[in-house]
C-alpha cells in the first residue's frame, strides 16, 4: 500500500509545475519547474519501493540532464521570451484534443486493468544490482556503448573545425584600414588637464569638440562638460604663435601645442 499523502504530494508536485511547460514564457522558468517535477518523481519512486531509482532520478535528471538543459539555455540566450501566439492554423486545437483524448483514452484503459495483488519488493541497490548484472548484463553493456557513442556524437556535432588560420595582429590592422575605420586609437578625453579631464571632450584639428571621446556613462549621467571655457583660453593664447610657425599638419600642431598652452595657463 502506498500512502495517500505521498501520492497527493507527488501529484501536486508534478502536475502543477509540469503545466509550466504549456503556459510559462521563459525557458528558464520552465526548466526550473521541470526540476521540481523530477524531484517529485524521485519521491514517488522512493515511496513505490524503488529507492535506488529515486536516487538515480535525482542524480541523473535534476543533477545532470536538467543542468545540461540550463547550460544550453544560457548558451543560446537566457533572456529569450517566447511569443505564445500560435503560428500554425489549428495547431492549438489539434494539440488540445489529441492530448486530452490521449489522456482520456489512457485513463480509460488503465481503469479496466486489474492486477492480482503481489508481494512488495524493494529495489535497493543490492537487489537491483543482482538483477541488472545477472539477467540484464548484456543490455547493460550495450547501453554503455550507446552512452559512449552518444557522447562522441555530441562532441562531433558541436565541434566546429577552424576553416581559416588565426589572424595575426598585423592582418587585423590591415583589415581595419581596409574597412575605413580609424587607423589609430580613438581620441582620448581630457585634453585639458586642469579639470577632471575625463568629462571634457577632445578637440579635432579644427578645434571642435569630439563628443564620443567622452565615456558614454558620463554622457548618460549628464556629467559631461562641453569644454567651451577651456577652448576660449586656448584660442586667445595660441593664435599669435600660429603665424610665426611654418605650416605643418594642423592636427600635429594642435596636439603639440595644446598641452603646452594649458600648462602656461595653469601657472
Amino acid at each position: 500500500m502506498v500512502s495517500p499523502v505521498l501520492f497527493w504530494v507527488v501529484a501536486l508536485l508534478t502536475v502543477i509545475p509540469s503545466l509550466a511547460l504549456l503556459f510559462a514564457r521563459k525557458a528558464v522558468h520552465i526548466a526550473m519547474s521541470i526540476v521540481l517535477v523530477m524531484v517529485g518523481l524521485a519521491a514517488a519512486y522512493v515511496g513505490l519501493g524503488a529507492p535506488f531509482l529515486g536516487v538515480v532520478q535525482i542524480v541523473v535528471y535534476t543533477g545532470a540532464v536538467m543542468m545540461l538543459f540550463l547550460f544550453v539555455l544560457m548558451l543560446v540566450g537566457v533572456d529569450q521570451r517566447e511569443n505564445l501566439k500560435e503560428t500554425i492554423k489549428g495547431q492549438r486545437w489539434i494539440a488540445f484534443f489529441t492530448a486530452g483524448g490521449l489522456a482520456v483514452l489512457l485513463i480509460a484503459v488503465i481503469g479496466r486493468v486489474t492486477i492480482a495483488p503481489a508481494d512488495e519488493v524493494v529495489g535497493d541497490p543490492e537487489a537491483i544490482a543482482l538483477v541488472l548484472f545477472d539477467r540484464y548484463v548484456l543490455v547493460m553493456e550495450v547501453l554503455g556503448m550507446l552512452l559512449i557513442t552518444a557522447a562522441i556524437g555530441a562532441l562531433v556535432m558541436t565541434h566546429t573545425p577552424r576553416l581559416l588560420p588565426r589572424k595575426t595582429q598585423a592582418e587585423l590592422h590591415a583589415a581595419r584600414v581596409l574597412a575605413g575605420a580609424d587607423p589609430v586609437n580613438k581620441p582620448m578625453p581630457g585634453v585639458f588637464a586642469r579639470h577632471n579631464a575625463l568629462d571634457v571632450p577632445a578637440l579635432d584639428p579644427d578645434g571642435n569638440p569630439i563628443e564620443h571621446s567622452v565615456s558614454r556613462v558620463l554622457e548618460v549621467r549628464d556629467q559631461m562638460s562641453d569644454g567651451a571655457e577651456f577652448r576660449e583660453r586656448l584660442d586667445s593664447t595660441a593664435n599669435p604663435e600660429d603665424h610665426q610657425r611654418p605650416h605643418h599638419a594642423p592636427s600635429r600642431e594642435s596636439d603639440q601645442r595644446a598641452p603646452r598652452a594649458s600648462e602656461e595657463d595653469g601657472k
Binding site: 495547431q91 494539440a95 490521449l102 489512457l106
Partner: peptide, 13 residues
C-alpha cells in the same frame, strides 16, 4: 498518463 499528455501537448504547442 496525465503527465504524459501534458508532455505531448507541450511538444505540439
Amino acid at each position: 498518463a496525465i503527465l504524459f499528455s501534458i508532455g505531448s501537448a507541450a511538444v505540439l504547442l
